[in-house]
Every structure is written in C-alpha cells, then in structure tokens.
Design a protein around this nucleic acid. Structure first.
Lengths: 155, 155
DNA sequence: TGAAATAAGTCAATATGGCTGACATAAATT
DNA sequence: AATTTATGTCAGCCATATTGACTTATTTCA
C-alpha cells in the first residue's frame, strides 16, 4: 500500500551525501602526489590505527575481498608505507604495521579531514558535538558498533 | 615541524566511514533487482527531488563529467524511470523528470535509508537531532551549503 | 601422525563508475 | 552570419571492485 509509513528523510539523505563527498575528497590532493587512491587511504588508515592487524581482520573491516585488497596492499608495502610481519603465535598470519613513513602519511591524510571536522564542531554548541558523534554511532549497523568502539577506545 | 597543531579526529573519521558505508549499502539489494548501481541511485534521487533539472545542473551537483553521466542516464531513460523534456525557454536543454515509476523507485530506495536515519534519531534527545543535522551541514563545503539548502527548502 | 582446515597470496576474467580528448548537432546569443 | 552554449557520442583508459580456481605454509584435530 502506498503511503505506508513515515516520510523519507530527503534532507538528511542529501546532507550525508554532500558531507561525505566533501569530507572524503579532502585528502585526494595528497594521495595524488603518491600515485595512490582512496583505497590506499582506507588501508593505510586502519593499519596505522591498529598496529598488528591481520589481513583477515582488515578485510572484515573494509568489507572487500582479498583479491581487491591485494594490489593496494602490495603497492603500500612496496612503497615502504606498510610492513608485514609473520605472526608470533600463528605464523600463517602476516600482521600489518605502518612504518614511520606510513604513520606520517596517515597523519597528513587525516589532517585536512580533521580540520573540516574541527571547524564543523566549532560552529556547534558543546552539547551538540556529542550529539553529532552519537548520531553517527547510531547510524552504524548495530552488530558492528563495537568494532568501531574498539578503535575509539584505542586512543 | 611535527606536532604542529591539533590531534587528528580519528574517531570521527572512522564513525563517518562506517556510518556512510552502512547507510549507502542499504538500497543495494533493491538496485540489484533492477540491474542498477549506486550511480543510477544518485541520478534518480536528484532528478526525483528536482523535477525539471537540466543536465548541466545535475552534473554540477554530482560533480562528474557528462560522459560519466551518459550511460547511467540513458539506462534510466530507456527503462522508463526518467523522462527528458525539451526546455520551454531554452530548447537546447533536456529537462529531466522522474516518471511515476521513477518516483516509486526513488521512494523505495529512500525507504531503508530513511528508516536507518529515523531509528538513529529516535535514540537521541530531541535537541540532539537538530545538532546532527547542523553538524552535517557544517561539514559541507561552505560555497555549496546553499545548494543543499535549495533542496531542503523544496519540501 | 596424517588429514583437514585455515591464513594468505595469486591468476584470470569481468563489472562498475569514473576520466580525458575529440567531435557533432541544434539552438541561443552577439 | 559568426560564435557560444547545451547536450550527446565515440574511443580509449584507469581504479576499484567482483567471482572462481588454485597454491603454499601452517595449524588444528581426530
């Protein structure tokens, strides 16, 4: 039956589209200098944030296949931004670490995005800042909210 | 100089990543049924929201080239979701309109996304809802905030 | 201990959604 | 009449993703 339920949140849908588009575009200039794309950024980000991450864990976070990850990870390793270390407890694993160079790049990629977030939050009341965070958290699939929290707790 | 300034907003960066990933994935099941992708969704969304939109305006909103738009728009037209009408005042223009079928599809694509937004907002205090909206608005490039407002005003 | 399962990597083929450059047509503007 | 503009199209390319098949090294389990 048409008219079954609540009206669409057109405005929020568009706000999310525009906000994310601008936000994700910030680091493109830097990425270009290294011949990297957004896929490299995502990989480097999570490796940097989670030293010792296994390949399987990374795939789970990014929700892509290992074939997709393959090229991107190889390029990051070959260019010296990421290192793979055989796992101590399970020697099949190749645990991922950002190198010093990798940490520096991750930081510089986060910089324009952090500035955008900082200035957006600055324009809001202090209570509104927690609200923004809470909203985004609620937007994540319930069964994955904890995996985000894992990262958040890490710092 | 290292340590030049504010710390990265790692947590917010990740919240935005996870939230947008889950949000944008909601309509994929429906799109698949029609053999469409996310590009079709974006086009249909803005055409539906802005009846009589010109091709040039749509390109400006999506920030893609007309060659990229080409295939997607053609498929939407051929499948009867979008109509092109020669402009009254400027007959070079092909003004875009969603058909009845197109409006129905746009609505059904918005449905799971709206539900996610609704439930996220439901978990928040009433004042926090405005805060979430305000935050996203501030995240948009300043010179484009008005173009979002144009859509928002439309309803 | 030997078989099965797991972590990771690789090859090949394919899809999607972008891009640049070059060019064509029709209509509006000057 | 000449130029500019709005749109469309052809061709070739790139980045990022997919599925499916297979290999290697290592761990687990019966």
């Amino acid at each position: 039956m048409p008219g079954s339920g609540d009206p669409p949140h057109w405005e929020m849908i568009e706000l999310l589209f525009f906000a994310y588009r601008d936000f994700i575009g910030d680091p493109d200039v830097i990425l270009n200098e290294y011949g990297f794309g957004r896929a490299h950024h995502r990989v480097l980000h999570f490796v940097n944030r989670s030293p010792g991450l296994s390949v399987a864990e990374l795939l789970e976070i990014l929700k892509i296949t290992k074939q997709s990850l393959g090229r991107v990870l190889r390029e990051l390793v070959e260019a010296g931004f990421v290192e793979q270390m055989t796992g101590d407890v399970d020697r099949r694993q190749r645990l991922l670490h950002a190198t010093e160079k990798g940490r520096a790049l991750a930081l510089s990629l986060a910089e324009p995005q952090s500035r955008r977030i900082r200035e957006a939050l600055k324009a809001l009341d202090p209570e509104a800042r927690d609200a923004a965070r809470a909203f985004l958290r609620q937007m994540i699939n319930e069964n994955e909210r904890e995996s985000n929290a894992r990262f958040a707790a890490r710092r």
